[in-house]
Lab assay of single mutants.
Amino acid sequence: TRVETATETAWISLVTALHLVLGLSAVLGLLLLRKQFPAHYRRLRHALW
């Protein structure tokens, strides 16, 4: 049972790390898009919101 708990903890930390990386890359991508293609960014924002 101890090994299972350790594996679960590892999976949870892995998933958390993946979510963090995905969130950060999404934010960075949006910032880059905003900087380089303001028109595209505006259109995207209108489409999303």
Rank of each mutant, 00 (worst) to 15 (best):
L48F: 11
T16V: 13
A17T: 08
L14V: 08
H19L: 10
V15E: 03
E4Q: 15
L28H: 06
A26R: 08
R43M: 07
Q36S: 15
L32R: 06
A6C: 10
L44M: 14
A17G: 09
R42D: 12
H19G: 15
R34E: 06
L33K: 09
R34P: 08
L24T: 03
Y41K: 04
S13D: 08
F37M: 00
H46P: 02
F37I: 03
P38E: 07
A47H: 12
T7R: 10
T9Y: 08
L28Y: 02
L31V: 05
H46A: 09
E8Y: 01
V21R: 04
P38N: 07
R42S: 11
L22T: 15
A26C: 13
K35D: 09
W11P: 00
S13H: 10
T1V: 14
L48H: 03
Y41C: 13
T5P: 03
R34K: 14
L32N: 01
H46E: 08
V15A: 02
G29C: 13
L31F: 06
W49K: 07
L33A: 11
R42Y: 14
H46D: 09
E4V: 14
A17N: 00
F37L: 04
L28I: 03
G29I: 12
T9R: 11
H40A: 11
R42I: 09
T7C: 09
T7D: 00
R2E: 13
L22F: 01
P38W: 03
H46F: 01
Y41I: 10
R45I: 09
A39V: 13
V21Q: 03
R43C: 10
F37H: 01
L32K: 07
L30A: 13
H40T: 10
A47M: 14
L20N: 03
L32C: 06
L31P: 04
V27E: 03
G23P: 00
L28K: 06
T1P: 01
S25V: 10
A10V: 07
E4D: 14
T16H: 03
A47T: 12
L20G: 09
T7N: 12
H40Y: 07
Y41G: 03
A17P: 01
A17E: 01
A39P: 01
L14G: 01
A26W: 11
W11L: 06
T5K: 02
W49C: 08
S13E: 02
L22S: 14
L18T: 04
E8T: 02
E8A: 05
R45F: 08
R45Y: 04
T1S: 12
H46Y: 02
G23Q: 01
A47W: 11
R43I: 10
S13Q: 10
A10C: 03
H19I: 15
A10P: 06
L32Q: 00
S25P: 05
A39R: 11
T9L: 12
T5Q: 06
L20C: 13
T9W: 11
A17S: 07
E4H: 15
E4T: 15
R34M: 11
R42N: 13
